[in-house]
Amino acid sequence: MRIENAGENSVIGWFADHASVEVNESVMATCNNLEQSMGGAIIDLVPSYASLLVIFDPFRTHHAEVRERLSAAFERDSSSETITTVIELPVLYGEAFGPDLTRISENAGVTEAQVAELHQSIEYRVYAIGFAPGFAYLGEVDSRLATPRLETPRQNVPKGAVAIADRKTAVYPAQSPGGWNLIGLCPTRLIDPAAESPMLITVGDRVRFVEIDESQYLSLGGEL
């Protein structure tokens, strides 16, 4: 792992120069180790694909100590005991709900139904959360579905939109601008401010998509 100073009260560790399940698992294991070993001296931990940003309390520790602790927390061998949560997300696929579905199916040379099937065929890993609260980067989609981002992002992507960009897929937790390709809608609430743990998904979790029809979508609280 390569460690550098990031800011006046932060350091960043890079685990590799590429993303992979193993690298990401190592990031998460290290993140958890560090949280346990440094506890209150940590203000924020920001894990991503292959890096971990550590923001610390400058009145309780300093760069040199955090670098040492990060290095010590570095977990090369992601232990098999890690408990993985698998989250199932229902999706209403269709051109009417995901206006880029047809284009993706044409590019891939498959039917729209097959796009939905291929999208459901993989148990995805949550590599990172960012861009917006609860926006989970899931990977990787079947290579046939890989589609570059829109050249001009949409002003308004609806809440619950299921989307693909390159070999990543995601569900928009709230209405926002966005440049990903839309293939359907998910009725599940990803953020619940009132709940004890307000976020449904965290880094390291697995996500499966399951097709539903319009009436199921509505009965699950989806809005059209």
Binding site: A6, G7, V46, S48, Y49, L53, Y137
Partner: peptide
């Protein structure tokens, strides 16, 4: 560049 954490003032 792979997306990474951004600290204040970056």
């Amino acid at each position: 560049l792979l997306s990474e954490g951004i600290c204040l003032g970056a």
